[in-house]
């Protein structure tokens, strides 16, 4: 039991963080008012005239806004799945390797891409998948027609998801590695005594033990369903893939800072935040109900 007298010290401990939060996160939030105004920079945000829900009405009229929300969800969802599945399988595969040195080396190396910035990785992707780049050279070596990877709206989302998974799978596998190491070795020993094969042990023991972890992670990532990755897409896209590649964040950036459609841009951004809050609440509730786990 924590004594009551601790409370005032707790408040003091919170001060630096709350001040930081108030000044740099909360204070600039008055900007969301722009969504309900016709923003005129000459007048400033406070004095600009109110327009009620006009910006939101316009947003719903635009085909573009539906499109970018759809694209965002599609890409983010695919990333979510990929970022669970690939690290999961990867961790299982690595778990089968008994050589410690090798395991360590592979682990260390696969963390590497996580530490690179998207500016760098996106530039590389464009090179490797270019029309005369290495991938197409391999394709033509196999007698296939070269493909315009970054010019094809059907392929683009796959590239976005693929490169994101590539960049993060090692890092995302960390949790699975540790879940695997926490499996009681006695279970394997018992199985070996019963004559279970390597494959059977994998199916019957390993996978069931880490499924709960995966399920929990899936729930937790729900809140990110509208975060499709600005840095990445901004550095990779072009007009011919707008139909599948333009996401909320890139759209807001263009509309707001380049075309001065502040009201509209803020309205779209605000909608995104609200949906995000709803989703986080859902995942909080789900995790608590079914796993008795509090996210925060």
């Amino acid at each position: 039991m924590i004594p009551k007298s601790f409370s005032k010290h707790f408040y003091i401990m919170l001060i630096p963080g709350l001040v930081w939060l108030a000044l740099f996160n909360l204070y600039p939030m008055y900007g969301v008012l722009t969504a309900f105004k016709e923003f005129n920079p000459g007048l400033g945000i406070w004095k600009s005239p109110w327009v009620g829900m006009e910006n939101f009405q316009y947003m719903f009229e635009l085909d573009d806004s539906k499109l970018v929300f759809r694209n965002t969800v599609v890409i983010a969802f695919a990333k979510m799945v990929g970022n669970l599945l690939v690290p999961f399988v990867f961790a299982l595969m690595l778990n089968e390797v008994k050589n410690r040195l090798l395991t360590r080396t592979v682990q260390t190396v696969v963390y590497l891409p996580h530490f690179l910035s998207w500016v760098i990785v996106a530039g590389m992707m464009l090179d490797i998948f270019s029309y005369s780049g290495p991938v197409n050279q391999v394709l033509s070596g196999l007698g296939l027609d070269p493909i315009m990877f970054f010019g094809n709206a059907h392929i683009f989302p796959a590239l976005v998801v693929g490169s994101d998974v590539w960049k993060e799978f090692g890092f995302n596998a960390i949790i699975f590695f540790s879940a695997l190491t926490s499996i009681n070795p006695e279970m394997y020993e018992a199985a070996a005594v019963d004559g279970a094969s390597q494959w059977q042990r994998l199916i019957k023991i390993t996978i069931p033990s880490i499924i709960p972890v995966a399920a929990l992670l899936a729930t937790l990532s729900l809140g990110n369903i509208l975060n499709a990755g600005f840095d990445q897409i901004f550095n990779m896209y072009n007009p011919s893939v707008y139909s599948t590649g333009d996401i909320v964040d890139t759209w807001v950036y263009r509309a707001g800072l380049i075309d001065f459609q502040y009201g509209l841009a803020t309205a779209v951004g605000l909608l995104k935040s609200v949906v995000g809050l709803v989703l986080i609440t859902i995942s909080y509730t789900l995790a608590y109900r079914f796993a008795n786990y509090r996210i925060f």
Partner: peptide, 9 residues
Amino acid sequence: LFNGGLVPW
């Protein structure tokens, strides 16, 4: 989750 946008920031 929420932010006021680049200009107010």
